[in-house]
Amino acid sequence: MPQPEYINERLEALNDIDKELVIILSNASQVIGTLAGLKSGNEAMKPQFESHVKAFYSSLERASVDLRREIKHLDDNIGTRLLPINLDKKATGQDDEKLQEQLELLERELKRQ
């Protein structure tokens, strides 16, 4: 029994945030690469450097904004979709499950004449 669509959406969103955070690393690497180019005297790399820095900051912004949004989702759903954090979920109903299972076995057994 898979999780409902909403939960999958949230997982997907968190995954996207992760991706964005990883892209920040890639951006940083590119920024440093172009900086090295600039330092070695290649002035033509200046616009490239600028665009990489911009990309770095926009990724950072997207990640933090999205993360905030997910936290808000979490806050909003406590008490409706989710149990309050300080409450432990109980594994209730397993007795009924077993009962059902064994009764089915019993039924099958009794039918098997």
């Binding site: 890639s26 940083a28 690497s29 590119q30 900086l35 090295a36």
Partner: peptide, 18 residues
């Protein structure tokens, strides 16, 4: 320049790993 280059490649590595 060399340390810049190394920093770049390190970040790249980490990026790929992550």
């Amino acid at each position: 320049l060399r340390s810049l280059e190394e920093a770049r490649s390190l970040l790249k590595e980490v990026y790929l790993e992550s």
